[in-house]
């Protein structure tokens, strides 16, 4: 008999910005829906360790999907005529459409990096629709430190430069196996997709002027960031937590920007208490 992992992958159609999108979704476990949002330029594989951890899947129905243009989700029809650029509005609409298409009732939303930023926008705009939000490596204001044009041009290999851009975002303590698995996914992104995601991450997603309005009594907010993260630094995480009254922030020592995929054993030490608290409070 083959020994399968408990993760099941399927495709679903949903409408985003007027386009019918073919979206790849994976899920495992049962209980409270926990939607996981991958980082810019990567895909849902980043969450595979969470989805095979009975300590989580015994209590949560863990779902993750590849955003349009990413992984096994298609870009919209006519993509060749479009310069992909993820905006705050489009990203919010995509996550909302996914939750509706999957008929999820008050899920917990956990995103990493750009996913960690969008969950804060969602907590502000739709506080009653989510049981809680968890921002991994997510802050309400960031400072770009590289020129994203390098990520999409014919004289530089897009996959290799994307991985090279983020390789230093992985903590030196993280196991080599998972470091290179994380970077492998970056090497496989479509042309211009990482760059297009970074439009949201570096440019369009700032909202430190509005994050103070998030009501954590209606939607609890958790912020978990890695010590070695060069974009969502511990300082920016703490600044964000100070603005979002009632939020809970943790800086994960010896961790980088991709906690769930770069060091799953260390990450579970941080995420299990958060998931337990959300479960108990509900």
């Amino acid at each position: 008999m083959p020994t399968f992992e408990p993760i099941v992958g399927r495709y679903i159609s949903m409408v985003v910005a007027g386009d019918t999108m073919r979206i790849y979704v994976e899920e495992a476990g049962s209980g409270i829906p926990l939607v996981c949002l991958h980082t810019a330029g990567s895909d849902s594989r980043q969450f595979r360790h969470l989805m095979t951890d009975p300590s989580i899947t015994d209590h949560y129905r863990v779902l993750t999907f590849d955003l349009p243009w990413h992984g096994k989700s298609n870009p919209p029809i006519g993509w060749r005529e479009i310069e992909y650029k993820l905006t705050t509005g489009l990203y919010k609409e995509t996550v909302v459409a996914f939750c509706q298409a999957m008929e999820l009732n008050q899920p917990v939303i956990m995103g990493c990096s750009m996913g960690g930023r969008i969950v804060l926008h969602l907590a502000l705009e739709y506080p009653d629709d989510y049981r809680a939000v968890i921002a991994l490596e997510g802050a309400d204001r960031l400072k770009p430190y590289y020129d994203t044009d390098w990520l999409h041009r014919p004289d530089v290999n897009g996959g290799e430069v994307a991985a090279g851009f983020v390789s230093g975002q992985i903590a030196p303590q993280s196991p080599s196996e998972y470091r290179w698995e994380t970077l492998w996914a970056y090497m496989q992104g479509g042309p211009g997709v990482f760059k297009g995601d970074l439009y949201f991450y570096w440019v369009d997603g700032h909202f430190d002027d509005r994050s103070v309005q998030i009501d954590t009594t209606r939607c609890p907010v958790y912020l978990l960031s890695g010590e070695y993260d060069s974009s969502c630094t511990p300082e920016r995480t703490r600044d964000t937590a100070e603005r979002i009254k009632g939020s809970k922030a943790v800086v994960m020592k010896g961790m980088g920007h991709f906690p769930m995929s770069e060091n799953p054993a260390l990450f579970r030490e941080h995420i299990l208490p958060v998931l337990k608290e959300i479960r108990v409070n509900n």
Binding site: Y146, S167, G168, Q173, Y228, S230
Partner: peptide, 16 residues
């Protein structure tokens, strides 16, 4: 062998 954060990678050094 185990650099401090911000010192562990060329890009991180530039970011910092």
């Amino acid at each position: 062998p185990m650099p401090k954060r911000g010192h562990h990678d060329l890009f991180s050094m530039m970011a910092a």
